[in-house]
């Protein structure tokens, strides 16, 4: 049953990707990217990674779609025809894709408990999390406690990115308003 769900989801993912590649209307691309994120969230649920699935659904499918639609509101909604040939990008993508597939060939089979990544710190997290932090959700304990520095960096990245976009979009407008009020004062 699970492999059937996986097959359906991955087929839909591939179909969505191909549809995005063929799409010239940026509005369509944004909506299809939202569909892609939602399918990806479903894949994460099948993989039992509910925390990631929730993030993917809320950020990828919902908020980023709204923000991208807001950005499209400011720009043209149609992609211009490419000026250069398509052969070089196609070859580059195929080469990178082939390298990634080649890289997966040496990975241990999916879900094996004796894979290297499951032998390093994972047993300690699984055995000690509840005793050390009192948090039954190991994901939350790793994110907020064991890897607290990483999450602090992540929050700072969101902060800096948000401030940057706000300055880019709102900075000029503020300055205009300041100039207007200065001009009014002079009158």
């Amino acid at each position: 049953m699970e492999s059937l769900i996986n097959m359906v989801l991955l087929t839909l993912l591939a179909a969505t990707t191909i549809a995005i590649v063929g799409q010239r209307s940026l509005l369509g691309v944004v909506i299809l990217a939202s569909v892609y994120s939602f399918l990806m969230a479903s894949v994460m649920i099948v993989l039992d990674a509910v925390d990631v699935a929730m993030t993917e659904a809320s950020v990828g499918a919902a908020i980023s779609t709204v923000l991208l639609l807001g950005a499209l509101h400011l720009t043209k909604t149609r992609e211009e025809a490419p000026r250069h040939g398509r052969l070089l990008p196609l070859l580059l993508c195929a080469a990178v894709g082939a390298m990634l597939v080649w890289g997966t060939l040496v990975l241990p089979p999916f879900g094996t408990p004796d894979a290297v990544i499951h032998q390093h710190v994972v047993p300690r997290y699984i055995n000690e999390t509840v005793r050390e932090t009192g948090s039954p959700n190991i994901v939350t304990a790793v994110l907020a406690d064991y890897r607290g520095f990483d999450t602090l960096g992540e929050t700072t990245v969101i902060f800096i990115a948000g401030i940057g976009v706000m300055l880019l979009l709102g900075g000029l407008r503020r300055r205009d308003r300041a100039q207007d009020s200065a001009a009014e004062d002079q009158r």
Binding site: I63, V66, L67, G70, A71, H73, L74, A144, T151, E154, T155, I158, F159, A161, G162, V165, M166, L169, G170, R173
Partner: peptide, 20 residues
């Protein structure tokens, strides 16, 4: 984390909408 994430998303939305 919740305070920063929620306010950043809303602030970005406001910035885009007001600009448009």
């Amino acid at each position: 984390v919740a305070v920063t994430v929620s306010s950043t998303m809303v602030a970005l939305f406001y910035a885009f909408v007001e600009r448009g």
